[in-house]
Computed example of a mutant assay.
Amino acid sequence: MGIKGLTKLIGDNAPRAINTNEIHSLFGRKIAIDASMCIYQLLVAVRVGADNLTNDEGEVTSHLNGLFYRTIRLLEIGIKPVYVFDGAPPTMKSGELTKRAEAKKAAEEAAKKAREEGDLEMAEKFSRRVNRVTPAMIDSCKRLVRAMGVPAVEAPCEAEAQCAELVKNGDLFATASEDMDSLTFGTSRLIRYLWAGTASTASKKGIKPTEFALDVVLQDLDLTLPQFIDLCILCGCDYVDGIKGVGVVKALNLIRKHGDLQKVVDTLKKEKSYTVPDPYPVEVLRQMFVEPIVTPAKDVVLKWKRPDVNAIKKLMIEENQFDSAKIENGIKRLLAAKQKTSQVRVDSFFKRATAPNEAERAAKRKAVAETNKKSKKSKTQKSSTSTKGRAAKAKKDVT
């Protein structure tokens, strides 16, 4: 789910933080990719009618086909991907996972009914919602990625949190994910539509990567990072539902007015028109984003190696019966692309300008407030003096 309504909130209140560029502008960048999200998208996109691709054993292979070719495409563009895989989900996410499982079950039943009624179009529509990413699929993806010479990082918990850890440490340029909670975990840059932007139809559909800059988001929303995290929780996230009647705009206004989530929750509990979820453990929810379970960046080794051609052929051709000629051609492209990713961007030699830090922003706000206060006081004094003058003149004229 990510953060409910956050994309629109940023678009309406901090549009300067959003930039849409051609995918080739990311040449030379090292990018953390939320692997589980990408695999799910491939299961939806790589199909023959309503069905996934399968091998001779009837096992789904759509994810391998898509991952192989789109990784090659990223490398051909000059992007150096790092795939980060989810670990065990946090306990607090169990409610969201249950909802997703129920939704898939409902879609599966709807697809079955549509097939029985002969409505193939609706059957295909609902079948796309039934996809399940199994441990075996994840393991095969890790094997493929590593055989291609690309780093595969196994997060102890949430992949988005691990991506953010690597980006915050300066090891990588950005996190690529469709979930906006990557910003809540503190990634300095989030790129959406990167994966879709590598598809062969991306140009025709006008799909381009969209970058969100966290420092500009904070500056233009006039929030500190802790306040932004509180805002995201209040909007509704994977760990707790939103509060009915509190949309993203109201959530922003409440955080600005009260300063932090606990004060907002205490205020809303006193009002009969709002029902705050019970429990609503503010400090625990904050810690899920402030101190998530991750492997420290210093302990993560990132190396882009020469592809293991034999390992690729074994997995793709021998075990999963992909067309040998197509895989051979893909390997040629992969080897050629590896040369491109060794090139360095010119701007990597320069330090990137950043938005003002929290202290500077606070000082600026205080200075503006003081100036406005003095200006208002001065106008009041002038108005008072002017009024007295007019009254004295009027008295004199009467006399």
Rank of each mutant, 00 (worst) to 15 (best):
Y280F: 13
K257T: 15
D215S: 10
K303H: 11
F228V: 01
D323F: 00
I233N: 00
D266Q: 00
K303F: 06
K314D: 11
L223P: 03
A311G: 01
Q321S: 13
V284S: 13
F322Q: 11
I312P: 03
I255A: 01
D238P: 07
D222Q: 15
L315F: 11
T275S: 06
V290A: 04
F212D: 11
A213S: 03
R306K: 13
D215N: 08
D266P: 06
K208F: 14
D278V: 14
I233S: 00
D230A: 02
P279C: 09
Q287P: 08
V276L: 07
I317P: 00
V282F: 04
K263M: 05
M288P: 06
Q219Y: 13
G259K: 07
I293S: 14
L221A: 11
L252G: 12
G247F: 05
A297H: 06
S273G: 04
V217Y: 06
P307T: 15
N253D: 09
A311I: 03
Q262T: 07
K270D: 12
S273V: 14
Q321P: 05
V217Q: 13
K250L: 10
V249W: 05
Q227D: 05
C237W: 05
P209W: 00
K244T: 11
D266I: 09
D299G: 05
K250R: 15
N329D: 14
D323G: 03
L218I: 00
L214Y: 04
T295N: 09
L254E: 07
P226A: 00
V301W: 13
A297V: 04
T267I: 08
N320S: 04
C237V: 06
P277A: 10
K314L: 10
T224A: 09
I327L: 05
V265G: 05
P307S: 14
F228Y: 07
E211P: 04
F322Y: 15
Q227E: 01
T295I: 15
L231F: 05
Y280A: 07
V309P: 00
N253A: 04
L254G: 08
D215E: 06
G245H: 10
L214N: 05
L268Q: 09
I207E: 03
L225E: 06
P277N: 14
K270Q: 12
P307E: 11
V248D: 15
I243C: 04
D278Y: 13
L221D: 11
A325I: 13
K298L: 13
V309W: 02
S273D: 10
I293P: 04
T267M: 10
